[in-house]
Design a protein around this nucleic acid. Structure first.
Lengths: 145, 145
DNA sequence: GTAATACCTAAACCTAACTTCAGGTCAATA
DNA sequence: TATTGACCTGAAGTTAGGTTTAGGTATTAC
């Protein structure tokens, strides 16, 4: 059993954040003694899960839903699984989007490298994709579908 | 030359967003006639760039800086290039982070599939990484460094 | 001539996820 | 005894990136 201050140290999370999570219902089973929060192994595991779900882009209210399902027991396995499947798709899509962004940035890096060499953008402005280095052209075309 | 309403249609961006961007200094060279904004090719290109930079996670104030550099001309090529190089690193790091998150989600999907089959988490709780399917174990270990 | 549009501004409002503040309880220490 | 420190609360403040509102101008449509 840990106090909020100890947990704050353990996870390097501000005390205010832990209280906020509690207020938002992210620790459905947490006990108190004379008003003071008691974090036990269940809550520590909850914090680990919160950190994971947050990283995947889940919002607090969805994490709250998940915690409520966990508290409900084995009847909710399929909902929990569905949440993770949905979230995996979201993250996959996000990675794909970022890979396109990456190609755009690669192109821009090349562009300004050329501009620096030329001292101006005249040549670049009249440059067709066919005249770019293959690698850059590929990035350009992937980034501008 | 286009009015704000036409540009709003062209890019499917609310008029209020375009005014907001203008207020934030994202169109340094924009002209007006009797108070009314005149979007020309330069501003349209600026909007394309804004969309790109936003997708890469850049904040409005950094985009403003970039636009200011563009307005300054060829002296600022190296700053602009440095911005894109930095941003490319950020996006690369973000993709790496998301790939870890993906492994965590893959593991969780498997976990709840097993839980559904078993009807409880008893077996899973006492499961060592060595006893997981190779693919899942790999995801698990990549997600929990 | 008036009413609907499209434009303008400044300022208030919105959401998420916190953080900060003001004020209060309680136990241990100087 | 008093004061320090860790806990508590509810409410207000913060930031980013807009959106909404209230009020005003100018052109076109009937």
């Amino acid at each position: 059993m840990y106090t909020i201050g100890q947990v704050s140290e353990m996870f390097d999370l501000p005390v205010s954040t832990l209280r906020y999570y509690d207020k938002e219902g992210l620790f459905p089973g947490m006990q108190r003694t004379s008003g003071i929060r008691q974090f036990d192994e269940e809550q520590l595991e909850a914090i680990r899960v919160i950190e994971c779900l947050k990283k995947s882009g889940l919002e607090i209210r969805d994490i709250k839903q998940f915690m409520a399902w966990c508290a409900q027991g084995s009847e909710t396995y399929s909902q929990r699984r569905a949440l993770f499947i949905r979230q995996r798709q979201n993250v996959e899509a996000e990675i794909q989007r970022l890979n396109q962004v990456l190609d755009m940035l690669t192109f821009k890096c090349w562009y300004y490298e050329q501009a620096m060499q030329d001292g101006n953008e005249d040549r670049l402005r009249s440059l067709a994709p066919e005249d770019m280095p293959a690698e850059i052209r590929q990035a350009y075309e992937h980034a501008h579908p």
